[in-house]
Design a protein around this nucleic acid. Structure first.
Length: 112
DNA sequence: TAATTGACCCTTT
DNA sequence: CAAAGGGCCAATT
């Protein structure tokens, strides 16, 4: 893990409010890393377990869960989202749950 | 140094 | 709606 990017990716993920979801690409952009969606995935996978990271609020751009249907992680993600009130049909997440961040909020929380 | 990988994305069939 | 092809780029091997 020799990446200085991970921290700011985690920081950005932490800004997703409960009950909302954001896509990998979206996170990458907001973290100041346009085009690095894949890196976000790596960052989440490499995130310390101690860190309370809401990774379940990160989905694919097509609004599908991050994992293949039937996988343990996919089921867990679905559970966690349902608990937060996010509607999940099959692999797809309700589009109404998509996070629409407001610039002033981000600038206040993320200072970089 | 070169090749492979990946919790991805977008457009076109 | 599902599949396919091409692109992307840091991390890892």
């Amino acid at each position: 893990m020799t990446s200085a990017y991970y921290p700011q990716i985690w920081q950005t993920v932490l800004q997703i409010p409960a009950g909302k979801v954001a896509s990998y690409g979206q996170i990458a952009d907001l973290a100041g890393l346009p085009g690095r969606a894949r890196l976000v995935g790596k960052a989440l996978g490499a995130a310390p377990k101690e860190r309370p990271l809401p990774w379940h609020r990160v989905v694919r751009s097509n609004l599908q869960l991050a994992f293949s249907l039937g996988s343990t992680e996919a089921n867990l993600q679905r559970e966690l989202l349902l608990v937060e009130g996010v509607i999940v049909r099959g692999l797809k997440v309700d589009k109404a749950a998509l996070w629409t961040p407001q610039l002033h909020e981000l600038l206040f929380n993320l200072k970089f």
